[in-house]
Amino acid sequence: MPIPAHNRRASRAVAATLSAAGLIALAAAPAAFGDETAPELVIGGIEPVNGVKPGSSFDLSATVANKGTRAAEKVWVSYGVTRGLDFAEVPSNCRTQQVRSYDEMPERWIAVCAFDQVVEPGTVYTPERPLRVEALDRALNDELRVNVWDVDPGADENGTQPVAGTAPAVKLVEGQAGSEGTARVVNVPVSSVNTADYRVTGAALKGSVGDMVKMKVKFINAGPAWILTKQGERSVSVMITPPAGTSVVKRGQFCQAKGKAYVCGMRSLNEGSQETYTFELKIDKRVANAKGQVALSTEARPFDPNKANDKADITLDVTGGEPTGSTGGSANVSGGSAGGLSTAGDDGTTTNGGTLAETGSSTLPITGAAAAAVATGAGMLFIVRRRRTQSPS
């Protein structure tokens, strides 16, 4: 049975942001349109999953119960997993689609399973065969979301065309009483044993006094894991200090001035992603042994044990002019655009929580006001949101 497309506004009303604070059960669904006899379906039997090894799989079991007073003639159970996970096998009564990031929702896979059978009030049911979930090579800290419906939720219009599963169909069977849940939608964390290697690269500059030179430095997540940035959490930023004796004519995209340094964000923390920060500098004078630096911010990153590549030098070879003895930071003159940035709070945490995959665009619009607001503190996050209307690839 095809899953029809549905209105994005309707989907957002039931698609709250995936949470990372352990097991979270959202409010139970109210009776539809004030009908006190409507079915009241709830999900249960789901626990956090820890210590998964990339390449392995685990079984996902769930229960469905009807706390209402009227039977549900048919039910749909929706399973959503973030991009470090995938469905190893999908029953033929389920359809899957890949949904790209939009708003605060991260990229994810969704499987919607239709059960064409009656769910009676006061009875607990469970799929006769659990859904198999696989941890991919990029898995680290992922999330799982399970939802139950008494109407077809349809397909997410930001996703790929839904595809039917090929494994044998499953049905609901009566389960053990007392295992019923209390909410219509449940989010749980899935943690894997994995690492990610954040790296920065420096630059070697050369020119004469009065010259304009370009400085290009990079941030790279060399993987193998991707990083899910969660709402309100601190995340990595890149601190760039140009060499002494230079002034910044144009700062890099996603960068904001902080004293003599610049704090820079990135579009993506996916495995293999990278961000290049291009600055235009003017060589004002020759300073002996002038050297700048690019370095990662200092928040804890237990998933990244390799600290040797967390900082790199920016060297400057100046010809002409008499050298001075100072090796201090450069003058902080910034004439360029900082690009689109997430709004950050005074404690260095993001208020939008979005981490979006690279699109190749030089500027990416974001939702909300104060797009260029800057927070104090080394752990601030500037991550650009993906264009909400971006088509999935």
Results as ranks from 00 to 15, higher is better:
183 A>G: 15
215 M>L: 15
100 R>K: 10
206 K>Q: 14
69 T>P: 01
312 A>Y: 02
276 T>Q: 13
69 T>K: 15
382 F>D: 07
110 I>W: 01
71 A>L: 08
125 Y>G: 01
233 E>Y: 11
216 K>H: 10
34 G>Q: 12
248 V>G: 03
166 T>V: 12
323 P>W: 00
64 V>Q: 08
308 A>E: 10
186 V>D: 05
29 A>H: 09
201 T>S: 15
344 A>K: 12
209 V>F: 03
377 G>R: 02
38 A>L: 05
179 S>V: 02
187 N>S: 11
383 I>D: 06
44 G>E: 08
10 A>R: 14
161 Q>R: 14
315 T>Q: 00
183 A>N: 01
331 A>F: 04
106 P>M: 08
82 T>C: 04
174 E>M: 10
33 F>T: 11
180 E>W: 02
116 D>L: 02
141 N>I: 05
65 A>S: 15
301 R>I: 03
314 I>N: 00
169 A>H: 00
159 G>L: 00
236 V>A: 06
207 G>R: 06
245 G>F: 00
136 L>V: 03
31 A>Y: 13
234 R>Y: 04
35 D>C: 09
181 G>E: 03
198 Y>H: 15
53 K>I: 15
113 C>Q: 07
200 V>E: 03
369 A>Q: 12
122 G>P: 04
308 A>C: 01
62 A>C: 10
17 T>P: 11
292 G>K: 00
88 A>R: 12
303 F>E: 14
333 V>R: 11
40 E>N: 13
8 R>F: 10
359 T>Q: 13
12 R>Y: 12
173 V>K: 05
62 A>N: 07
141 N>A: 13
200 V>D: 02
266 M>Q: 14
